[in-house]
């Protein structure tokens, strides 16, 4: 343990909660979710309805992602939880603590060491490998929702591949702003079939979905939908031939690690509004600064 990781000590102190099944959910519920996940993997990008349970965290705070994590976690897994790319944001701490308590699994902040990574709003900068599963928390799984409010209609549109209207929105952006003005939750086509919402990750992360060696699972608890991108699946961000998809770039470098190709958070550091930019992925930033120090922590 080292002083740079304020969570490590209290994390280890978290006692295993008794009176609950391994990873909170009962085995029957987990089996139901696993069946849904198998279907989701078999039909990449298709939203599978599932009997989402009430979790002891509020809807909208990651209950979908937590249910998927609970369904796939095994005793040997090493769990990492990030929110906004960071391991130490309150909600990430809270969810990591939940699984440390209810499943007693080992937790880590180091991306390469994790076998299951639950995330809200980011994909880690460190490339994932084939032994890892990334679980996304999804608020609104339906990419067509803001064009068509009715679920009956959007399901028909998916079934018929009736997606012209998605490009109407992009056309309108270009006509109005000269650019596609969607910067996060940027819709993608999965395996040349379903249009999918990649959850509110910045479009910066979209290319990481394409041909990823890691399995990507998406869970929306309130909306009771789950979907998946299996390893090595084609994921294409919607665009026009003459206005191709492009990711954000910063003129600044990370104030800590100097990275110029990672996603940067902007901090306002004084009353005059002076700004600093730092990596949103805290582990990536840490690794670049101290590449040799081991950081594994254990939840129990």
């Amino acid at each position: 343990m080292n002083g740079l990781n304020p969570n490590a000590a209290s994390q280890a102190a978290g006692a295993l909660e008794s009176g609950y099944n391994f990873a909170y959910l009962d085995e029957q519920t987990k089996r139901m979710i696993r069946r849904g996940l198998l279907k989701a993997v078999a039909v990449p990008g298709y939203q599978v309805p599932f009997g989402g349970r009430e979790m002891p965290l509020p809807y909208g705070w990651g209950t979908g992602g937590m249910q998927l994590s609970a369904a796939i976690l095994g005793a040997d897994d090493v769990l990492k939880v990030i929110d906004q790319g960071a391991d130490d944001t309150t909600n990430a701490v809270s969810i990591r603590r939940f699984f440390a308590r209810t499943a007693g699994v080992a937790t880590t902040t180091r991306t390469p060491e994790a076998t299951v990574i639950q995330t809200r709003h980011r994909i880690p900068e460190t490339p994932l490998h084939g032994e890892q599963i990334l679980v996304f928390q999804v608020p609104i799984p339906e990419p067509l929702r803001f064009i068509e409010p009715s679920e009956t209609e959007t399901r028909t549109m998916h079934a018929l591949g009736d997606y012209g209207v998605m490009h109407v929105k992009l056309y309108e952006d270009i006509a109005t702003f000269g650019h596609i003005a969607t910067s996060y939750a940027y819709p993608v086509t999965v395996d040349e079939r379903y249009v999918m919402d990649p959850s509110p990750i910045p479009k910066f992360d979209n290319p990481k979905l394409h041909m990823s060696p890691a399995l990507m699972l998406f869970g929306a608890g309130r909306e009771k939908r789950l979907y998946a991108v299996p390893p090595f699946t084609e994921v294409v961000s919607l665009d026009f031939a003459d206005h191709p998809f492009a990711v954000q770039r910063w003129e600044e470098n990370c104030a800590f690690c100097g990275s110029h190709d990672s996603y940067l958070d902007e901090l306002i550091v004084d009353d005059a509004g002076s700004k600093r930019f730092v990596c949103s992925d805290t582990d990536y930033c840490m690794q670049r600064r101290e590449p040799f120090e081991p950081q594994q922590e254990v939840g129990q």
Binding site: Y59, G60, R222
Partner: peptide, 25 residues
Amino acid sequence: NVEAAGFVSHLKLPHYVDFQSELEL
């Protein structure tokens, strides 16, 4: 109301990353 309260209250969670995207845009 459990669903509604949850989703409204999740606005209190950090949205730095998405907000950064919008700032940049």
